[in-house]
């Protein structure tokens, strides 16, 4: 008997493609452009094929390109993206997709390390390319990681304290009512992890070309893009599972799950197109101020409900 959770990476990739399409489309509409078209008349087929699967076409294109490896790069340059992709794929197994996932009594801890590992492997691959822009991007990414992961940890553990478990399956529910502070803290740190607009500092293209991925191209960049698309799904699905999930099963579970994913995706898409980019010192200061405060409040709220009342 094969567990249905083994299908999670495939589902994650396909929904991730649709989510990236959604992000593109929303930012295009906010910028008063058309963006990738949803439907095209048949007679336009030779002119323009950019449609819903445009992110997939981009990845296929990258995989058909030649990979250029700088002469100064170390073997970690190749290992970094592949390990990052592996982390992302493994992370999908622990995030419930419509309630289906592998579950252990400490799956939140495993998921946390997988999510952090993905970022660390990208940093490792980037800085071993010996590009100066990658090094600066790495410094920015690591600064951002410190400021961002603490609210993430505190926010998720606030739920863990409330439900007295470390299993994601047992934590799931419409917890945004139970602990709104935790929901806010986790949402903000998800936005930072995905490099959504005010926080796309590590890959700021006008400042440090493309940050960590400056030297990547071809198949390795395709691997990185795949990992990024899976991460978009994993983080959004994690938020939906933890805060917007209504316990159900079968087709209804899928409806609720997808509705939650789309709602969160739309929210993130609007954020992405409505902000300028922070400077790194502004971003870390802001992250240490507001999300940290919110997450400490979340822990306090959880402890209050669990132990005092």
């Amino acid at each position: 008997m094969i567990d249905a959770a083994w299908l999670n990476p495939v589902i994650a990739f396909s929904i991730g493609i649709l989510l990236s399409f959604k992000l593109r489309k929303i930012s295009a509409r906010v910028q008063s452009r058309r963006g990738p078209l949803i439907w095209l008349p048949d007679r336009w087929h030779d002119i323009n094929r950019s449609k819903v699967l445009q992110p997939l076409y981009d990845i296929i294109k990258l995989f058909s390109k030649q990979t250029i490896i700088p002469s100064t790069a170390t073997p970690f340059f190749i290992a970094g993206p592949i390990l990052a992709l592996m982390c992302a794929v493994l992370a999908t197994l622990f995030v419930p997709v419509a309630g289906i996932s592998f579950d252990y009594s400490f799956s939140l801890v495993v998921l946390f390390y997988l999510l952090m590992g993905e970022i660390l492997f990208i940093i490792m691959g980037g800085i071993s390319s010996a590009s100066l822009f990658s090094a600066i991007g790495g410094v920015r990414e690591i600064d951002l990681m410190l400021a961002n992961e603490i609210p993430f940890i505190l926010g998720t553990f606030a739920l863990a304290i409330t439900f007295d478990t470390l299993s994601i399956q047992q934590m799931m529910g419409f917890n945004i009512l139970i602990n709104p502070f935790a929901a806010l803290a986790v949402l903000l740190s998800i936005i930072v992890k995905l490099h959504i607009k005010p926080f796309d500092i590590p890959e700021a293209d006008t400042e440090i070309v493309n940050g960590l991925t400056t030297e990547y191209g071809g198949k390795l960049l395709g691997v990185l893009e795949t990992a990024r698309i899976i991460m978009v799904f994993v983080l959004i699905a994690l938020f939906v599972d933890l805060f917007l999930w209504i316990p159900s099963s079968g087709a209804l579970a899928w409806v609720i799950f997808l509705a939650g994913v789309i709602a969160t995706g739309v929210l993130i898409g609007f954020m992405n197109s409505l902000f300028a980019r922070f400077r790194i010192d502004q971003a870390t200061r802001w992250l240490f101020k507001i999300p940290l405060l919110v997450s400490v409040l979340a822990i306090g709220w959880a402890v209050l409900w669990r132990y005092v009342l």
């Binding site: 930012s27 906010v30 452009r33 796309d200 006008t206 197109s273 902000f275 300028a276 980019r277």
Partner: peptide, 10 residues
């Protein structure tokens, strides 16, 4: 150049 592409488009 400060990362606010929406402003450029408008």
């Amino acid at each position: 150049l400060t990362g606010f592409r929406t402003m450029l488009m408008h």
